[in-house]
Design a protein around this nucleic acid. Structure first.
Lengths: 447, 447
DNA sequence: TTGTAAGCGTTATCAG
DNA sequence: CTGATAACGCTTACAA
């Protein structure tokens, strides 16, 4: 079927090979004559719309059984203009609102209103539009809609390293909430590189994202300013930006660490080592400060060599443990600023033939999924990861929907102590308070 | 500074509270008089542009030192139209190409060309435009550009569960490649729910994504058709869609399983159990089929009760191991279709007091990050995860850039055996072939 | 080398 | 209740 015959169309249809022509919508039962064809040629598909012809030849609400064929012969010039005569146009297969309007015999405005469930459209019309829309598979272009409305229905999620076991759980929480509003998630993995971070932020702003969540990192001042200037709501997670106050979700690191130390002390430990997290991370600072405070509060051995620097990686936990065990006066317990380092320490101790928890106790922070594996069985502080993502997303959505001038809100989640198998009284301690049975998921120590 | 004085603007500026007015760009050294102001009121920021006034009062390329103030008094009607007189317009803070054009004293077309590095623009002009663009922080709206060009510079990544430790590594690989072309990643977490999958696909299509990667799942026929009809390149990973041939990245499951079985046999095992993956997953099928083939090839005990169903979760590995150990004739080795199940099995065996590898050997598949932890130390088949993501993204980008009619390509990655501490000769076997030196520390003592 | 103008597909406004 | 129309911000023929 040489559809490409018509005059005005040739310039757009280009050299057409053999096409199979299939009626997609329209026809006797559709109220508007033969209208939509699907052209298939190999993998390529086009949708031909005779939208304009409809306007040209027929009275608006004429019901059906029109001359159901032969129309494609009529040459016609301009295309796209909804008024006068027009040629069939070949589009990249997506029907537009104009198509749908023509198909239903209403104006595009009405289609828009009908689809948006605006009150000012007759139920009958609305149903017609909806039905036809489904029929031809119409979906509004989000580019067009975004351009018009200045929104994009997507939110940017900036993470440092998605492969860090802590991160995906948070992402999961975010996704869950965001999905409920049918917004999309744009995942930005910065590798903690300033340049990549900046570039991603720019890209997100160009995309007119509705909002942004930044996980465990800070944006530099300029980026923050850009985001603020664009009026994009921002929620920071785990790490506050200095000098900028934004909505924030975090965890009470202080009380988390405190619980761990308290628990260790209750077991009888006096020399408790700490493996610090990454430099310049506020959560790392918080946790370390809390450790120091707790040590002081309990009047423990404040030997500064008990605090060693790590970087949140398993390797750093490994080497931290080795250096601690090399100390002339070993600690009897190691508290790490995250689970990965605690697991690293566990590995090192195992290697060194030091028994856990008989010789040394180990406590982590985060409670990543594998921490509960029977062979690891790590006592740790639970960081509610999914809840974190959930809260961040909620905060963001509220901010998007609501007043942007309200003061920033914070959600600080509560950590909890999860006692597993890597903690016990220190060696040669004349049994202190009774140790809880392992595997119990209690919080706080029995005391 | 009562900027809102001018006539035509009032309808848009709305009831303005106190604003602080800051000169952003323009001024004596900018070639176009005072042009850009930033209005700040509380958290809200506006950018005021006198773009049109420029057109109205001044000759085009007039250099500088114009009447540098007092312009805002002049009432002016229409705004946005580049010709005649116009009022200052208040936009949601983003300068548009028109602003930049006016600021540079050139047409928007020239700005566009300059920014796109088109050859037909004088170097001088190009540099001017670029400089000014940076100065006022101009960035093209991707909605507008996307609308015009029908692309979006984002690619959809459909995963089942981002929290599965296998997934983030693949995502990481994808992100890495995609980022190089400055495309964004839209993360779609389907929870393996058909309905969510469909909805996400639709949403992605609405967004005019440039391409799509589907990880470890299949889209139903209708979704596949939609994607194909929209002409969106699609790469499937780990799992082929039946009836649709697409670009594909996977791993040679067969040879992976074969390697594992061969290795176990070489250690002397004859009763090798298999923990199957999720029903209806092609990779699970492949791996199970490969197991069966290998068992047959080696003439091993084909006892069907040695094959138990799992679902890729740790729990299912746990219960699989328990049921296997409850058999009257126990296997001497357990091969699991993924690491999570293998780890679950490890846990169960530990619980049951069965020594690994002394009593039973365990082999996993995937080599997730924690498998190498000294306390787990799981012998496994490495699945190159990052490379998988990398390859998928490459394939996709090539397809996007290149001819979409070329036949689909497949990349099948090679697995490799990673011998760690969970494998050894079966008990009471009069030393078979020499066992490889166990490179890493043993495991399974537990306490 | 630059400018003009026509869209891309929506939705909001306002008029019927 | 429905329709015409004007944006939204950009790119790309085509014209100058």
């Amino acid at each position: 079927m040489p559809v490409s015959r018509s005059r005005g169309a040739e310039s757009r249809i280009a050299p057409l090979p053999m096409f199979s022509v299939v009626l997609v919508a329209g026809g006797p039962d559709c109220g508007a004559g033969l209208l939509f064809f699907r052209l298939q040629s190999g993998a390529k598909t086009f949708l031909i719309r005779f939208a304009s012809i409809f306007w040209w030849g027929m009275s608006r609400n004429r019901p059906r059984e029109e001359q159901a064929n032969g129309q494609q012969g009529g040459g016609a010039p301009a295309n796209g203009t909804v008024n006068g005569t027009a040629a069939p146009s070949v589009s990249g297969v997506r029907p537009t609102i104009l198509d749908l309007a023509a198909l239903c015999g209403v104006s595009p405005a009405t289609v828009s209103n009908a689809l948006a469930d605006k009150p000012n459209v007759k139920a009958e019309t609305r149903d017609l539009v909806r039905r036809k829309a489904r029929e031809i598979g119409y979906h509004a272009s989000s580019a067009a809609r975004g351009l018009r409305l200045g929104r994009s229905w997507s939110i940017g999620l900036v993470v440092g390293d998605i492969a860090n076991p802590f991160v995906p759980d948070v992402v999961r929480g975010v996704e869950d909430v965001v999905w409920r509003e049918r917004k999309n998630l744009i995942l930005c993995n910065t590798d903690f590189q300033a340049e990549k971070k900046t570039a991603y932020v720019r890209s997100l702003l160009d995309k007119q994202i509705d909002g942004m969540i930044v996980l465990s990192q800070i944006l530099d001042a300029q980026d923050m300013e850009r985001v603020a200037a664009a009026g994009i709501p921002l929620v920071t997670v785990n790490r506050r930006a200095p000098d900028f106050s934004t909505d924030y979700v975090g965890i009470d690191n202080q009380s988390g660490v405190r619980m761990a130390v308290d628990y260790l002390v209750s077991l009888g430990h006096r020399r408790i080592a700490f493996v610090k997290g990454l430099f310049r991370s506020s959560s790392a600072d918080d946790r370390f400060a809390a450790y120091q405070a707790a040590v002081q509060a309990h009047g423990l051995d404040g030997d500064p060599s008990l605090a060693v620097q790590g970087d949140y990686s398993m390797e750093s936990g490994d080497s931290a443990a080795r250096s601690l065990m090399a100390l002339s006066q070993r600690p009897t317990a190691i508290l790490a600023a995250n689970d990965l380092m605690a697991l690293g320490a566990l590995g090192a101790l195992h290697d060194l033939g030091i028994r856990v928890p008989a010789d040394v106790s180990v406590v982590g922070f985060d409670n990543i999924q594998l921490a509960e594996h029977p062979l690891l069985n790590l006592t740790t502080i639970n960081h509610p990861k999914r809840e974190t993502g959930d809260a961040a997303a909620r905060l963001l959505l509220q901010r998007i929907a609501g007043d942007r001038n309200e003061p920033p809100r914070s959600v600080v989640l509560k950590p909890s102590l999860i006692v597993r198998g890597t903690t016990a009284p220190p060696p040669s301690t004349p049994k202190p308070r009774r140790r809880r049975p392992v595997t119990v998921r209690g919080t706080g120590d029995g005391g």
